[in-house]
């Protein structure tokens, strides 16, 4: 049921895109016109401001989630990690995974980095306590999040969030989006297709 809904979502977006051209062989959803996120930034490791752009010739995967999420987030992280092992090591080396926490109360940058480190060596934890800043970034991506109401000090709350993964290139363009449950095989195929694109 869930799988077929995801498949339908991808199919509808894919059809919308097929009509408009773009990279024909991508398996995830491609938006037209594409989302441009290269002007957005968030605080990363060592107080560094991180722009939503991949390194030259690379890809930046951006996911919004939180470390106390035991089902959805680790499932996606494990699927991405699996996809990276399916790529040629030279290609996998060009992929960095960024996770923006939607739970800055519990997630410190160190905690987020440890969490990502369980899955990836090339990782980028991003965090701000400024909800206006975070909202500006999530709004630009089309991500929603909502922290469950809780008493101060209560550590057992849930955070609802959009569970898509965004694949951003070195110009800050979102090239493809993967819904929750997207297979690691299809992720690997999309990453390889984008990394093998002839470069201008």
């Amino acid at each position: 049921m869930r799988r077929s809904r995801t498949a339908l979502f991808v199919l509808v977006l894919a059809l919308a895109v097929a009509a408009c051209g773009g990279t024909a062989s991508l398996k995830g959803a491609v938006r037209n016109p594409p989302l441009e996120v290269g002007t957005l930034s968030l605080p990363g490791p060592d107080g560094r401001e991180v722009t939503m752009k991949a390194e030259p010739g690379g890809l930046l995967l951006v996911y919004f989630g939180y470390t106390s999420c035991p089902d959805v987030c680790p499932t996606t992280m494990a699927d991405i990690s699996e996809a990276l092992t399916e790529l040629h090591p030279d290609q996998a080396e060009k992929v960095t995974v960024a996770m923006v926490t939607v739970d800055p109360e519990r997630d410190t940058l160190e905690r987020l980095d440890d969490y990502l480190g369980h899955f990836f060596s090339r990782r980028l934890p991003l965090r701000t306590e400024d909800f206006d800043r975070l909202s500006a970034v999530t709004a630009a991506f089309g991500v929603q999040w909502e922290i469950e109401e809780h008493e101060p000090g209560d550590q057992a709350y849930d955070v609802a969030h959009t569970a898509l993964t965004y694949v951003v290139d070195d110009t800050g363009t979102v090239r493809v989006e993967w819904p929750f449950g997207f297979s690691s095989e299809d992720m690997a195929a999309d990453l390889a297709a984008l990394l093998e694109e002839p470069r201008a």
Partner: peptide, 18 residues
């Protein structure tokens, strides 16, 4: 989504929660 409590915007198929 709840207009008061939900941040961000929805272009991506909604939020997941437990």
């Amino acid at each position: 989504a709840d207009d008061e409590a939900t941040h961000g915007s929805d272009m991506g198929g909604g939020m997941m929660e437990m």
